[in-house]
Design a protein around this nucleic acid. Sequence first.
DNA 1: CCTACCGATCGGTAGG
DNA 2: CCTACCGATCGGTAGG
Lengths: 194, 194
Amino acid sequence: MARTQAADYEEKREAITKEAAKLFADKGFAGASVADLAEACGVSKSLIYHYYDAKEAILYDVMREHIDALLAAAEQTKKSRNDPGAQLRALTRELLRRYVGAADRQKVLLYELASLPDAARREIVAKQRAIIARVEELLGAANPHLRKDHAKLRTRAMLYFGMLNWTHTWFKANGPISRDGLADMAAETILASL
Amino acid sequence: MARTQAADYEEKREAITKEAAKLFADKGFAGASVADLAEACGVSKSLIYHYYDAKEAILYDVMREHIDALLAAAEQTKKSRNDPGAQLRALTRELLRRYVGAADRQKVLLYELASLPDAARREIVAKQRAIIARVEELLGAANPHLRKDHAKLRTRAMLYFGMLNWTHTWFKANGPISRDGLADMAAETILASL
DNA sequence: CCTACCGATCGGTAGG
DNA sequence: CCTACCGATCGGTAGG
């Protein structure tokens, strides 16, 4: 019996986190109330507080699950034997797949980092930096000349993430450009600039 | 006397808008209260409502003044006789100058568009589209081949704006890369991809 | 009769 | 897992 409840517990927590991602993406963290979230989930406000101690803890869960998936994609490329350019193209596809597949969470990650408590924010930021570091590694490997100028390498990496992180504002998966096609254009654009 | 008061009126309204840009950028529109704003301005909340009918009207002013400056920079390029690439490089410098010089307003423009009432948002979005259209014109002129594939042209333009719009998260004006140097790298990156 | 502005408080709702 | 609430603060407005 305890085991059945535990399984149910996780399912319900997931359902709350999923609705929270949607609401936080639509109205912003400050603009979405816990009452809004309870109503969207069809439960009482108190039920939300049974699963989470504070509104910020929900935000943290929304971001953590998503950043972990992005970080895993970045780490995965380390197993590849392909040349750096091919690895960057593959990573870009994997990142964009997760951006588009979890658009609400991606938007929350981009827009609401400042709403997190310090310790939680530091943890998320550390994972973002690990992803950035992996991209810098690949760019540096693609053009060893860049390794001697870290400011330029960093700038290239941030221009790359700018291209990807802005896609949520305009890209439609059912539009004329495919998700993989877009990923390839972004990767080729930064590689061509090296 | 009436003339002196009218001048004072505009100055005070400007002061409110400036503080509002700072607060909305730091805490978000929903997270910053009118009481916060009044305190930051050293006036009463009622004084704020003497100058603005609603909190949203302040947000609109913050964005409108900034988007008008960006749009003016885009329109300005139409007077140039330089080649399209040189015009894009010049426009990029001018845009980034305004992004960095009005970083609070730029952040508010990027993050709080959804907080505007419908009519106001439509007006801002129309101006954003005019700026995008100008960039598409320049990219199309730089590579006439692109004009036949508008989806690709649009994608190039949005990758370009992604590079620029993401700079507020990482670029430091006193860092190793200058503002104009960054603008040139972004312009060259998109031009090289054509 | 106007404007510019104040201290205090309105009806509702926030997170908890 | 709910109703009933709290201290505080929200956006906006009263009288003067």
